[in-house]
Design a protein around this nucleic acid. Structure first.
Lengths: 351, 351
DNA sequence: ATGAAAGCGCTAACAA
DNA sequence: TTGTTAGCGCTTTCAT
């Protein structure tokens, strides 16, 4: 090589020390110790079948002895992939998302991928910022109920593999919940109990779920001649329902469909505090079937979502996009839909 | 340069395309377009003051035009840092951790760091595996109430900057909650109400919080001559308390201290279902002051944790370890302690 | 089956 | 102020 400069990037890595406290072992150190070239070490680690068994054994032993860990940045640089996947949800504290997250994490637990989880706090700007930050650090991204615009979504999808959960877009494949069956069952149930004037407690106006729920609910009610009063929007939490309860009472309805279980639980709690009997005076239907729904008194009638199936479908879909050899043979459907269903419990009764 | 081989790593990156759909722009493309060298582009981006204003303007414009985004893997490789920090918690669904997580995320939102969040499902093996995976991808790690052994913790701390939350160890600095004041206030309160035989509903046996809570509670009770019955362990969730309630009733105590609010809420709910008056027949004290604690009927007396302060302290501590210029002047205390306090609400009354 | 060389995209030390 | 050069640690052709 020509040139005389001393050159040189490379800064000290913090905390990067080997077992002996010395500097972190590189592939070269292993190669030297094993008396082979770096390429052989690389092969022994990544393509064992290309290396003589005895050589491999020795290399592996040396690597072990030095506590060698391949440098991920270097691998990412040369391979062009990070082996990270991102997961963005609106609110980790929302009991609907917790199982979703856990499902995704569980799926990737046994793969080479690590999952980057982030919470947007239900805020669009934060969601966009997080997506930008993620895109640079992952090979694929699961966007759960994104609020961002279609254009922005397209920009993100152009930079990394994206799967949408609870939202459709031409820009990326999606996994969806089919609200219709659950909604129709809920409305049929309430109708059979004699309710003719009901309320819908809306969630965030810009939320896809909210629009979907309202839409199917409206259709089902219209079909059966149920009058539907719109209330809200309320924040999709316990406190939202707490606040909603008083407005419900003032609206003169005999049954309510809450945006989600949290809201329904808030209503239930506030009603108990005000001494209003449920379902005697008011019937309540929740959405999501969160764990606590079955534990209140009375237990909450709710539309259950197959969240677990949804999360695994989402995970499997990105995985398939990243690694063609991943499980999931069929040629990626643009949208996977999973049916919801009504769970009748104690908060619904005769009008 | 000598040599004749054509060499070469580099694989196709998926989804890596520029605005025109072409291959992703590199720093060299920008340099060429702007008629400068790559170093100048690098400087214009990272050390603007080292570059002529006009040159910088042109470079920035070209970068913008090409949709240039620096390759993080390359930066990480040369800089020796990822600009990621990891956060490991036992359970994102636990309302105690949700605010903690959000606090950490909020802190780093305005920094150059992205946060990698992971959930161990309260499982030690998972925790260890996640920590291993994280260590390779982050510059620093916040370990929330880790269950891993001290030896393992030391190994992790040797590889990256670590901050412990709710756990101490010689291996890394920690941020802690000081349970004593809250516990003493709770016991004094219950004692003043005339209770002399109480129960502690234990959480996970291997949990640091559980041991701490039990310890301070035991001390405070002994001091005031209160007999303390140990029940459990229960899983630290709503369902755990649900199950605990019946055992509490059988134990013949007049007041209980639950491991956390979730358990307390479960007890309260089950008691309501069985028609047992609270606090008439049994007084209940929770721990954590989760949002829902103030919304039940009656609202839950609970020991409040300064979680927000805790999370910010944890975040600021790792940040300071990563970047000496980060806020937080004082020379890293080995442990930061934050006081808890009792919030008296409706679930505690005369014996 | 193994090694030598080249280069992924970037930053920084040095020279000009 | 800017360009040149070297190299971060790894994988992968190509040659042996």
């Amino acid at each position: 090589m020509g040139g005389t400069g001393t050159g040189g990037g490379g800064a000290a890595r913090r905390g990067a020390s080997g077992p002996g406290g010395g500097p972190r072992a590189s592939i070269r150190a292993v190669a030297t110790l094993a008396g082979v070239s770096p390429s052989t070490v690389s092969r022994a680690l990544n393509n064992p079948e290309l290396v003589n068994a005895e050589t491999r054994r020795r290399v592996l032993e040396c690597a072990e002895r030095l506590g060698y860990r391949p440098n991920r940045a270097a691998q990412s640089l040369v391979l062009g992939r990070t082996r990270n996947v991102g997961l963005i949800v609106p609110d980790i504290a929302n009991p609907f998302f917790a199982p979703f997250i856990k499902g995704v994490e569980a799926y990737f637990r046994d793969t080479e991928y690590a999952v980057f989880l982030a919470d947007t706090d239900e805020d669009t700007a934060t969601e966009v910022r997080l997506a930008e930050a993620m895109v640079e650090r992952v090979d694929g991204l699961i966007l759960c109920a994104p609020r961002m615009t279609g254009a922005r979504l397209r920009a993100v999808a152009a930079r990394t593999a994206v799967v949408l959960a609870n939202r459709t877009s031409g820009a990326a494949p999606s996994v969806l919940l089919d609200f219709r069956p659950g909604m129709e069952q809920a409305v049929a149930h309430v109708h059979a109990l004699g309710h003719r004037r009901c309320a819908y407690l809306a969630g965030p106006a810009n939320s896809w779920s909210n629009r979907q729920r309202r839409r199917f609910l409206g259709a089902a009610c219209a079909e059966r001649g149920i009058e539907l009063v719109d209330l809200g929007p309320y924040e999709p939490r316990f406190t939202g329902g707490y606040r909603a309860a008083d407005e419900v009472l003032a609206a003169g309805v005999t049954a309510v469909f809450a945006y989600n279980d949290l809201v329904a639980l808030g209503v239930l709690s506030r009603l108990a505090a005000r001494g209003v009997p449920v379902p005697g005076e008011l019937s309540i239907v929740g959405f999501d079937d969160v764990p606590m729904a079955s534990m209140t008194n009375p237990p909450l009638t709710s539309v259950a979502m197959p969240v677990n199936a949804l999360s695994r479908a989402a995970a499997a879909t990105v995985h398939a996009m990243l690694d063609p050899r991943a499980p999931k043979a069929p040629p990626l459907p643009p949208a996977t839909e999973l049916a919801t269903r009504l769970l009748i419990r104690g908060t619904t009764g005769p009008a």
